[in-house]
Computed example of a mutant assay.
Amino acid sequence: MLPRVNQMLFFEIASADEEEAAVEYKARIADELEDGLLIENPLNITSGRMKRLYLGDELSVYYVSDEGIKHYFDSHVIGFRDDVVKLIKIRKPDPERITKIQRRHFLRVSADLEIAVNLSGNVRFVTVTDDVGGGGISFLCDGKWPITSGMEMDCWLLIPYKNGTLEHASFKAEVVRVVDLATGRKQVMSKFIAISDSERQKIIRFCFERQLEFRGR
């Protein structure tokens, strides 16, 4: 389903500045053209201030369907049109490149990301993930660490984005399954049990970018 006129778009703007890249904006679709969408001037969701966009600005966009499903796509500013108010023209998404994320189903992607893990008893270590998603992560670690199913972990994940910025996402996860590998290492699969919406969105954004990267190869 493509976004339609009067629907609200939510997006972040690619930026080398880490704080700017994390700011979320919203803008209403004013009109639909054959090759693009015309949106109103975006507003900073937190401050309510208007944001000026420039030709070529890259946007990570999502909109929510009536069923509550988030649809993600990448776009960029391709022009402007003077109407009663100035409208911004962005590239219309290719239906094949829209990622859908339902409330209880999150995209997972393979990724080697650095993660710090804190177990009970003040046991701490740093390792790398096997895959990540909006609902949980799995990672590989040394077999000496005392990890079992049902255990809770406090984690800090280092997330690199395609614009060069880095983010940290913190969360509490519960171990769902532990697999002892022939190499002597462990594969630990977990689900999030305590994570803020803003921290989850950081992970979802990374998954979305990684999926588009895979599709483009």
Rank of each mutant, 00 (worst) to 15 (best):
A22F: 08
F125Q: 06
A27Q: 09
F10L: 09
D83A: 15
P146W: 09
T129I: 01
Q102L: 11
R108L: 02
V132T: 02
F11Q: 12
N41W: 02
R49P: 00
S60Q: 11
Y72D: 07
G136L: 09
R108P: 04
V128M: 01
G79I: 05
C155W: 00
E34G: 13
E67G: 00
A21H: 12
E24P: 01
V84L: 14
V61D: 02
V5E: 15
S65M: 07
D66F: 01
E32Q: 14
W145I: 05
Y72H: 13
V126Q: 05
S138C: 09
W156K: 14
L157C: 10
F125N: 12
I78W: 04
L59H: 07
L113R: 05
G135Y: 02
R91N: 04
Y54D: 00
S65I: 00
D82P: 01
V117F: 07
K100V: 03
R28W: 04
G134W: 01
D142L: 04
V175R: 11
I90S: 09
E34K: 15
Y63E: 01
E34S: 13
K162M: 13
L212H: 12
E96Q: 14
A22M: 14
I90K: 10
F192M: 05
V188Y: 09
I13F: 11
L119I: 04
K162F: 11
V188H: 12
N6P: 02
C155G: 03
A22S: 15
I13N: 14
S120K: 10
G36A: 12
Y25C: 14
E18M: 14
L55C: 03
S196Y: 03
A173W: 05
G143K: 02
V117G: 07
K202V: 01
Y161T: 09
V128H: 08
G135K: 05
R97F: 10
T46I: 07
G68H: 03
R185M: 14
H71M: 02
R28Q: 13
A22K: 14
E213K: 07
D154I: 03
